[in-house]
């Protein structure tokens, strides 16, 4: 069987398949469906310094081949995570990455620092791209300066693997990727959701409580692939690709576009067992094409 191991900075993954933040809970919710020891890693829910209730219901609308959400980073805060959730996830048989969010630079740095003290969490994914919170979140991710200033502060507070999750809601994502690389990010992941809107014509109302939400699912895949390709050409650090991956073939496309690893999000809702199917499918693809390591196909487009 082909070698599936990849590394993202110092983070070693047994295979390139992780699950995306906000779509797989803390992994525990999926243990009836997935053998977590078969996954490269899981990225748990967005965590902030203080607890957040998130946005009012309705928070979700299905759209053509996708969905909009405006959950708004509901979570119980980093103290709760350290005290109550960490003990439950620290011995999961896969790499556990914590997605960190905030509304001020100080919040980001403090949260990252707290997570850095947890022995069994080898990496964080810094979410500077959430479109669903009014303050902060995406505000930092849409300018090179904003992105650089958060990453700079977090880099000082956090010694382990730092993955920065980029927003697709920008004019030039490559420029932002270069800015966070220059501040010491170990990797970038992309894409977060694309800002969108849904309207109920019959009722003449916005469907989501706050009007707008983030689009995910198969509808965003071509945009995500293009951005992963573009960013992987622009930076020297590893790229984690996500956005609309539903199958092993989709995942292979991201690897070919230049991603070192992938994350699976919305697809978990449709088939809760999909993540490990993608792992097996990548193995089959490598065998079928005579590759001995998954690393041989990273960025291996022939044209």
């Amino acid at each position: 069987m082909a070698d599936l191991k990849v590394s993202i900075g110092a983070l070693e993954l047994r295979n390139p398949v992780m699950t995306a933040s906000g779509t797989f809970g803390y992994g525990l919710e999926f243990q009836d469906f997935v053998d977590l020891s078969e996954l490269g890693g899981i990225v748990v829910k967005g965590t902030t310094l203080r607890p957040r209730e998130g946005n009012p219901y309705p928070r979700m609308a299905e759209t053509a081949s996708g969905m909009l959400n405006c959950v708004g980073l509901q979570n119980k805060g980093v103290d709760y995570f350290c005290e109550h959730i960490y003990p439950e996830v620290k011995d999961l048989p896969t790499q556990v990455v914590v997605n960190v969010s905030g509304s001020t630079i100080e919040d980001y740095a403090e949260t990252a620092h707290r997570i850095g003290e947890l022995e069994r969490i080898p990496a964080i994914e810094l979410n500077i791209s959430c479109p669903n919170v009014r303050q902060g979140g995406m505000a930092f991710g849409v300018t090179s300066q904003g992105a650089a200033s958060v990453v700079k502060a977090v880099r000082r507070a956090y010694p382990k693997t730092l993955i920065v999750k980029l927003s697709p809601n920008v004019t030039d994502i490559a420029e932002i990727a270069r800015a966070v690389e220059a501040e010491g990010a170990d990797a970038v992941s992309l894409i977060n959701t694309l800002m969108g809107m849904a309207i109920d014509a019959e009722r003449r109302r916005k469907v989501l409580s706050i009007g707008t939400g983030g689009l995910s699912g198969p509808a965003v895949k071509p945009v995500a692939l293009r951005m992963v390709h573009q960013v992987s050409k622009a930076v020297g650090i590893p790229v984690v690709g996500l956005g609309g991956i539903m199958s092993a073939t989709d995942a292979v496309e991201f690897l070919l576009a230049g991603a070192t690893a992938v994350e699976i999000g919305t697809a978990n809702f449709i088939d809760p067992g999909v993540s490990t199917k993608v792992v097996r499918g990548i193995s089959e693809y490598l065998a079928r094409h005579g590759f001995s390591s998954v690393r041989e196909i990273i960025g291996a487009l022939e044209n």
């Binding site: 906000g22 779509t23 797989f24 809970g25 919710e29 999926f30 209730e53 998130g54 009012p56 219901y57 309705p58 928070r59 979700m60 969905m67 959400n69 959950v71 509901q74 919305t266 978990n268 809702f269 809760p272």
Partner: peptide
């Protein structure tokens, strides 16, 4: 009968506010 995405407690799309103001 709230709208759902995951159905397993992972996405937090289906919430309702309880008496204490928590989702």
């Amino acid at each position: 009968e709230n709208r759902m995405a995951c159905g397993v407690g992972a996405c937090l799309c289906c919430v309702t506010e309880d008496r204490t103001g928590h989702n």
